[in-house]
Amino acid sequence: MTMELRHLRAFLAIAEEGTITHAASRLHMSQPAVSRTLHQLEAHLGVRLVDRSTHHLHLTDAGAAFRIRAATALRAADAAFDPRRLGTWPLRLGHAWSALGDLTAPLLRRWNETHPDTPLELLRIDDRTAGLTRGAVDVALVRGTFTAPGVRSVPLLSEPRVAAVPTSSDLAERPRLALADLTDQAITLNTVSGTTTLDLWPAAVRPSRVLEVGNTDDWLAAIAAGQAVGVTTAATATLHAYPGVVYRPLTDAPDVPVLLAWAEPPTHPAVTELADLAREVAREP
């Protein structure tokens, strides 16, 4: 059977929605039609892409590897049919929070100077890969260790971790803090796009109270309200000054690597040029 774009759209809808029911609603199709389309795609590839053993569907390893290929191919097809992109089209750079810290403006400025005909769009997308594995961006700034099938990444720099505490807290009076200083506090964790988990603490001093949030704005609001403290990187302190929140260096927490990642092959012809420029900017004093 000949594969069509509808097969990719159905698979990606299932991957993002987690159920056939929600995927069908999103695609304005019947559930049997979505299931049939998925079966056809799996039969063509000769592998199972989706684990159907639970109510909430999960991608198999093969499905996870295929997801970025499907998103890349669909994005390329949509771009090809978009009349607004008959000439040069924008290069989309995703980030989940804080972009490249205080190097963000220099990177954007240098790109505009050297590539005036290729707009660079900086997009905040609240997920771990800043929209890369969903095909929402061409290249992404990612914090922490990151590997995915069909994705290439290069390290740019490392950022020290800092504690974010309420200005009303006794902790705010100290010039620096250690992880153990936060043990008896509630910890707010950005479980959607953040890099901090409870594994950062040794088992003996691991906090017992956790407040989960889904984005940086809610994370900051919880700290400012005195509901919790948080751990982030120095880039957040640079770009996200917030009333009621102060940042203090953490003396015993490892740095966080910042990577630039993109699909291989790239979804935009200028991706590798951006990678070269980002590394150049990151190396400069």
Rank of each mutant, 00 (worst) to 15 (best):
P116C: 10
R134T: 07
V154N: 00
R161I: 02
E273V: 00
S153C: 11
V154E: 09
G230H: 03
G226P: 00
T37E: 10
T147S: 13
T19Y: 03
L171S: 02
A278K: 04
R174L: 14
S153K: 09
W201C: 05
R9D: 11
L8D: 08
D117M: 13
T145Y: 11
R248V: 03
H39S: 15
R92S: 11
D127C: 09
L120Q: 05
P90H: 06
D51E: 10
A130Y: 01
T88R: 14
V47C: 06
A253Y: 03
P155L: 08
A234W: 09
L171W: 07
G150I: 01
G144W: 09
S168I: 05
A270L: 06
R174C: 06
A275K: 01
G87R: 13
A65F: 07
A278M: 08
W201G: 03
A164S: 09
A23G: 05
E273G: 01
G230C: 04
L45H: 05
A79W: 13
A80S: 12
P266C: 06
R84Q: 14
E159T: 12
V47Q: 12
Y242C: 13
A235L: 04
E16F: 08
L156W: 03
A136S: 13
I187C: 05
L103I: 08
A237K: 02
R36C: 08
G18H: 04
E42I: 07
V34W: 10
R176N: 12
G131D: 04
P160M: 01
L27D: 02
H240C: 09
R85F: 15
A234F: 06
N112W: 10
L189Y: 09
A140Y: 04
E159L: 15
P175W: 10
V281C: 07
L8G: 09
L91I: 08
L250Y: 00
W262R: 01
A96V: 03
V246W: 04
R69K: 15
T72F: 06
V142R: 02
S158K: 11
E113K: 11
A172H: 10
V231K: 00
H39G: 11
S193L: 05
V151P: 01
T236C: 12
D218F: 09
V256I: 13
V154S: 03
R152K: 10
R36S: 13
F66A: 08
L45Y: 05
M1Q: 12
H95C: 10
D181I: 04
V142H: 02
T118E: 07
G46V: 00
A65M: 07
T183I: 04
L157H: 09
A65I: 06
